[in-house]
Design a protein around this nucleic acid. Structure first.
Length: 468
RNA sequence: GGUCCCAUCGUCUAGCGGUUAGGACACGGCCCUCUCAAGGCUGAAACGCGGGUUCGAUUCCCGCUGGGACCGCCA
């Protein structure tokens, strides 16, 4: 389907990092625009000057780029569009769709508390509605919200959602400091940017009728709206910091790949039959509004890890190496060797995150090993001393230090000494890595290299003497 | 408290009136095996409850229950 008219946007408020939930909203808007060959716009909702920061903007931009959510227009900064908002306010005021209010914040807060205490809905009481106050410093502008009738949200995902206008409040459009508020600028900008489809979190559904009424007051047909079910934590409450990492960047630092994150996020609230694996191109091709689910989804890190593992295994050695470079603190010179390439392939079978690679390959980058105590007493036994010594001698004589040659040496030692493969392999593994798990033993010996293997076997053999 | 949203395995979900209710993650077992993984096979695991509508409801409607969101001069 091609629809050049489709224009979507992602409009975060730059007050923190890029949240997982926001990222999914961004993704869906991005995918829908791309799917329809439309336009995806990035807009910073930074009208709250107290809370918006440059760092937050940068973090959001950075996260978007990392995920590959490239925008076609923007970033548009709302704090630079004051004049546009001012024009619209004047229009609303002139048309009697808005009014000036001088009720103090303290008084309102008091009334609000009282209302809640007496079991009523906290709502502006309309004191200034008909006072026709003039605009002055320290006064706010409110929307004159119709107090009868029904406003129905025609939601792309939920269907018809009617709201009784009596439930709606006279929202503040302009703060007493002169800056416009969210509910107002979101409407003005979506009009100005000719947005055709608004996909946003479910938490905005209650705002939508107010915004619809604003569109009406402004004489504009609203865009199509779709409210995405929220992403939840394990306790089924809205995903937040207390559930663990919620910043996209945190996942990057923890060694996740953007492909995995995108795939995971896409499947939270959207599906395509029984398919689980989607590249960005697949998603652009297959994404549609019809298959967006209606119920909230719990963020399940196990599945993210599985996907990450999947993409880790799919990456080329070259791509993986460059992805892993930032995670390696010392020993980066090892990253260019054929041994590293071999090890990397083995590691990608076993590790679920880039971060795990460094841990799992610790013995490759560092020479100071600490033997696992239990394993040491189990595998560094006196009867292993001879076979290990034999092995060490023969490995030292090898001219071609490759896996077939290493395997031959192992076979010979096994034959001569009569020990079983398992204890020998485990003893060698412990000697070379300090642990009892690693890639296959021939591969391991090859990867560690002749010099280091000999050195580590010598160390191990002396350990046996000490304990004997 | 008011308004609104939601409801299929533990989790993500398929299902769009008639299915042995399917897949995936996680979990158990078996195989493979020098360890750890990977892989293969396999197992356990769900339609919240009560009313309708219908020949027939997981599916449509209503109620209940449960969970969630929102009620700012935040967005």
């Amino acid at each position: 389907m091609t629809n050049h008219a489709v224009r979507t946007r992602f409009a975060p408020s730059p007050t923190g990092y890029l949240h997982i939930g926001s990222a999914r909203t961004a993704l869906f808007n991005f995918l829908y625009a791309r799917h329809c060959d439309g336009c995806f716009i990035l807009r910073m909702e930074d009208t709250d000057r107290e809370r918006s920061t440059k760092q937050a903007c940068d973090a959001i931009l950075d996260g978007m780029r990392w995920l590959g959510l490239n925008w076609d227009e923007g970033p548009i900064y709302q704090h630079q569009r004051q004049q546009l908002y001012e024009e619209n306010i004047e229009k609303l005021l002139a048309d009697d769709h808005a009014y000036v209010c001088d009720c103090s914040a303290e008084l309102l807060e008091e009334k609000r508390k009282k209302a809640i205490a007496s079991g009523e809905k906290p709502k502006y009481d309309g004191t200034c509605r008909e006072r026709r106050l003039s605009r002055e410093k320290n006064r706010v502008v409110r929307f004159k919200c119709p107090q009868n009738g029904t406003t129905t949200v025609h939601d792309l995902i939920k269907g018809e959602v009617p709201f009784d206008n009596r439930e709606l409040d006279d929202v503040v459009l302009v703060r007493s400091n002169g800056t416009p508020t969210y509910n107002f600028v979101v409407v003005v900008d979506d009009i100005a940017l000719r947005i055709t489809h608004v996909l946003r979190g479910d938490d905005h559904l209650n705002n939508t009728p107010k915004q619809l009424l604003l569109y009406k007051a402004l004489g504009v047909t609203p865009p199509k709206m779709g409210h995405l079910p929220l992403i939840l934590g394990e306790d089924r409450a809205r995903l937040s910091k207390r559930h663990g990492a919620t910043a996209v960047q945190q996942y990057r630092e923890d060694g996740f790949l953007p492909e995995a994150m995108i795939n995971f996020l896409a499947r939270l609230g959207w599906s395509h039959g029984n398919e689980e694996i989607f590249s960005m191109d697949d998603l652009i091709k297959k994404f549609n509004l019809e298959n967006i689910g209606t119920s909230p989804a719990v963020f399940n890190q196990e599945k993210l890890l599985w996907l990450n593992h999947h993409y880790l295994r799919q990456h080329s050695v070259k791509d993986l190496t460059s992805a892993i470079r930032p995670h390696i603190k010392a020993g980066q010179e090892h990253l260019t060797t054929p041994q590293w390439q071999k090890l990397l392939k083995e590691l990608s079978e076993r590790c679920k995150t880039l971060k795990e690679f460094t841990k799992a390959a610790n013995y490759f980058f560092h020479d100071d090993l600490t033997y696992d105590a239990t394993a040491k007493s189990k595998f560094f036994t006196l009867q292993m001393k001879q076979p290990l010594t034999q092995l060490r001698q023969q490995l030292a004589t090898l001219e071609r230090f490759d896996e077939p040659a290493i395997e031959t040496v192992f076979k010979q030692v096994l034959d001569k000494s009569g020990v079983k493969m398992k204890p020998l392999a485990q003893a060698v593994r412990l000697a070379l890595t300090g642990r009892t798990f690693s890639p296959g033993i021939y591969t391991l010996v090859y990867v560690v290299g002749q010099q280091r293997t000999i050195k580590r076997l010598d160390d191990a053999i002396s350990q046996i003497e000490e304990t004997a």
